[in-house]
Computed example of a mutant assay.
Amino acid sequence: MPDTSTASLHWDYRDGRVAAVAAAVVFSLWVAEVVLPGGGAAQGALAEPGTTFGRFLDTTHRIASILVIVAAALGLSLGARQTRRWLRVSWWSMGAFGAASLATSLMPGPCPVSTDVACAAEALAEGAHGASVAQALLSVAAVVAALLSVVALTVNRWRASDPAWLFVAVMAGLQAVTATAVLVLAGVRFWSAGDGDPGVALGLLERAHLVTVALWLLAAGIIPGPWRRTHGGRTARIAN
């Protein structure tokens, strides 16, 4: 009978890759709404507060946020060391995104999705019950941290002469466009005191932004460069 008295949990960099990919999948679960009655592109908001689907998305975002934090922590501790400066920025920003998303999802505000900046801005402007400045600011911080992380990852892969840098750069460009559009329109919603319906356009933009977030996390998990350690040789001497 094997002796298990000294058994202990052993983390591996591959756990971080799995966590990043799993987070990408979980952040994509909002697509389940297309099969729900009344769902799909006709809705302006990502999810209606208090609905079964809203509670489902709230739970999935908490799970995804925790997975992102795990991936970032393992990337920092067990990931690659070459071109470390930009890679460190990417990991820390990823961790900040996960922490901000998790904190927002735990707040008692009316917005079920942690990255739903438009909902947070509208709820704050209208003085909705449970809405707070902290929730809105953390939603914005999550969007900005995700963008900073994918940009830093792009620079890191480019400096490491990794062919995958072009793919990550496309993801960074798409995320920059959608994040900027979402933040601008959310700002408009806030300064207009939340008057009127958020509209389909803003809902589609937020869905598109979540797609780019999921693709960034997927890229961070499947590209081996950020995780592969090197000892000596030309790769280890690449400048920061």
Results as ranks from 00 to 15, higher is better:
residue 2 P to Q: 06
residue 4 T to G: 07
residue 6 T to Q: 13
residue 9 L to M: 11
residue 13 Y to D: 07
residue 19 A to M: 01
residue 20 A to V: 04
residue 21 V to P: 04
residue 22 A to V: 06
residue 25 V to F: 13
residue 33 E to N: 14
residue 34 V to T: 15
residue 35 V to C: 02
residue 37 P to C: 02
residue 46 L to P: 00
residue 48 E to Y: 09
residue 49 P to V: 11
residue 55 R to T: 12
residue 56 F to G: 03
residue 58 D to M: 09
residue 63 I to F: 11
residue 66 I to T: 14
residue 68 V to N: 04
residue 72 A to I: 02
residue 88 R to L: 08
residue 88 R to G: 15
residue 91 W to D: 00
residue 93 S to E: 08
residue 93 S to V: 00
residue 102 L to Q: 02
residue 105 S to M: 04
residue 107 M to K: 00
residue 110 P to I: 10
residue 111 C to S: 09
residue 115 T to H: 06
residue 117 V to C: 06
residue 133 V to E: 14
residue 134 A to D: 13
residue 137 L to G: 10
residue 139 S to E: 08
residue 144 V to F: 06
residue 147 L to V: 09
residue 152 A to W: 04
residue 157 R to G: 00
residue 166 L to W: 08
residue 167 F to P: 00
residue 167 F to K: 10
residue 175 Q to P: 01
residue 177 V to S: 05
residue 180 T to C: 12
residue 194 G to D: 09
residue 197 D to R: 10
residue 198 P to S: 04
residue 198 P to V: 13
residue 204 L to Y: 01
residue 205 L to M: 10
residue 206 E to M: 11
residue 212 T to V: 05
residue 216 W to C: 09
residue 217 L to C: 00
residue 223 I to L: 09
residue 224 P to E: 10
residue 225 G to H: 09
residue 229 R to H: 04
residue 240 N to Y: 04
